[in-house]
Design a protein around this nucleic acid. Structure first.
Lengths: 340, 340
DNA sequence: CCGAATCATTGAATCGTTTCATTAGTACGA
DNA sequence: TCGTACTAATGAAACGATTCAATGATTCGG
């Protein structure tokens, strides 16, 4: 239960000055081999571990980056988080992770915490309106990068995915298969992601003369919501049926698939080609493996860290440059839209 | 880009001593109302935020708890994490989350990091053999609680779930439905969880004279592995079929269900009653909603924090008492084992 | 062999907070 | 009026690492 060893203990034990121990740790080149060996041995014998609090007190800032996501349970964010952690580790920083759970209160608490911790910078996928708080942080030299949200480039850097392009990709793919009577299944269009994906799909359909796109509003973004849409489809007469269905996310698509599979009147992809969005793990192992749109989550996480690093490298004097990086998602073709 | 205000700046601005500002923050009762008001106003005007590094340097330890999980993407751990965060917040601590991803190297890095951060204590779901490192931590007054792993009570506290009891529950439930020809589907029994669940199931079966349990080894713990087991079942002649199937996790069960559903020769639950383990989100929204065994993840996370707090409250002089808390899982009945 | 240049090492000052012994101020009873 | 008891406020010391100007040691060219 002994208090852990400090740099001073190491110095005594190795018969050198504290400054020398510090140099061994931070600027090994400045120290002769002999002393370095002695110091390293002392460190080993005492089991010395740097006290990060003291270090960052002196430095004025920590070596950590705050990251606040909407929901760690969501595979999209899980993947972003992991990529961000790895990218941060490469540049010698650690990531403090906060899960706001779509709750503005929790979000605000994490901002407080991270501010007390004097994080170098902040990555955030915001819930509430946090611009005021972020402005304060910026004034204090703590840059922010918005994640999965397009930002005013004059104010912040940001990384996001082009949902319109994703919607276009999905619809275009169905059209390329020769399908013409398309349907879009998606929750309330008040959700930006849903609206953008729909818009992209409409753009693709507009390019093909005899193609049409019907919008089927779903109650939510869940498997069950998808199943109830699917149940409605199954009841239609054959000439009223779409031949290609694009769902705003994979859960909806799996629901639709379940519904069709249970009735086993309509075949996927022969009668209806089906595509989802997000490429969740379950997409591969669905009864009929589900085509989907994959978002470059690793690139998102990595780039967010890089943009932050750019701002941190900007000398205090210079005006920081912000950048908004927009990624294009990727089409993943599986059996649910296989050519027939 | 101004350096952020320190307690000294606040003291000057409010015309008081630094100690007084500190008292306002930590012991408001010791300060008169008048001064308190002046100080709080100064804090507000300067936008002062405590520097946690300085605080913990003085205190000798931080107000954070390290938590290392095997996989944040796994809903089991996601839920444990969230519960632990909430419980920690109640006692004024924050949780630093590390995801080892089943990698002993990453695990070790996180232990290093947390040690530098001087965390109060550590919760860990270990990958490798970390007992040596945990021993060092304990010597330094940093207690550890093992999560989802039963530990030698003389050494550590731990929280875990009784997988044997879970297996018993599942099999017992099938037996209670009148099923007698049971099958267990599970990955390599070298995985402790799998072995324990099987053992519990065997215990239940042994209690019923004319009941039998067949073990079907699956390649892994995935939907696809489950499907291939299901495919084998479907090919059997009716008199060779089990009438109750217990899968070591929900993914396997969903795979088996898919396989049976696709062939639509065998009905669930009429011909085969099916139960999984873990109660993942997808269990509810399966084609036939899946019965499962739910693990008390919130209780795990909360209790882990509480056990840690117990050890932290133990005075340095006293011998710390360790406790191993074992939770019993819970049966969730859905349509896949509905009475017929 | 001397002075200059280079290299290695030293140790005091510093970061921002908390703690605590000390001082100042106030109220009250005798 | 004095002493006591209490409350409020003070400010220096301490935590542990880093930094940097100063010092000491060594090498090298002339």
């Amino acid at each position: 239960m002994s208090r852990s060893a400090s740099i001073k203990d190491v110095a005594n034990h190795a018969q050198v000055a504290v400054g020398t121990v510090s140099n061994v740790l931070n600027y090994p080149d400045r120290v002769s081999q002999r002393t370095k060996d002695r110091v390293l041995q002392a460190i080993d014998e005492l089991g010395f571990v740097r006290n990060d609090a003291a270090r960052q007190l002196r430095a004025g800032h920590s070596r950590t980056i705050g990251l606040i996501v909407l929901d760690v349970g969501n595979p999209f964010f899980t993947s972003v988080v992991r990529a961000a952690e790895d990218a941060a580790a490469l540049q010698g920083s650690a990531v403090l992770l906060g899960d706001s759970g779509h709750d503005a209160g929790r979000e605000s608490n994490y901002i407080d915490l991270f501010q007390e911790q004097r994080v170098q910078g902040l990555l955030i996928s915001p819930v509430g309106d946090v611009t005021d708080r972020l402005d304060v942080l910026r004034e204090r030299g703590v840059p922010t990068v918005l994640v999965d949200r397009l930002a005013d480039e004059a104010q912040y850097s940001s990384v996001s995915v082009d949902d319109d392009a994703g919607g276009y990709l999905a619809a275009r793919h169905l059209l390329d298969l020769g399908r013409r009577r398309l349907a879009f299944v998606g929750g309330p269009t008040s959700i930006r992601q849903v609206a953008d994906r729909l818009q992209g799909a409409q753009r693709a359909v507009a390019e093909v003369p005899d193609a049409s796109l019907e919008v089927l509003d779903s109650a939510g973004q869940t498997v069950l919501a998808g199943r109830s849409v699917g149940d409605q489809l199954v009841r239609r007469s054959p000439d009223q049926l779409p031949d290609g269905v694009f769902c705003a996310n994979d859960l909806l698509a799996l629901g639709v698939m379940q519904s069709l599979a249970m009735m086993h009147k309509l075949r996927i992809p022969e009668d209806i080609a089906l595509i989802g969005y997000d490429d969740i793990d379950f997409a591969v192992s669905a009864v009929v493996p589900l085509s989907s749109i994959r978002q470059p989550t690793e690139a998102l996480g990595r780039t967010a860290i890089e943009l932050l690093a750019e701002e941190l490298d900007t000398p205090d004097s210079a005006q920081p440059r912000h950048r908004a990086v927009i990624f294009t998602p990727e089409l993943v073709v599986r059996q649910s839209t296989a050519g027939v």
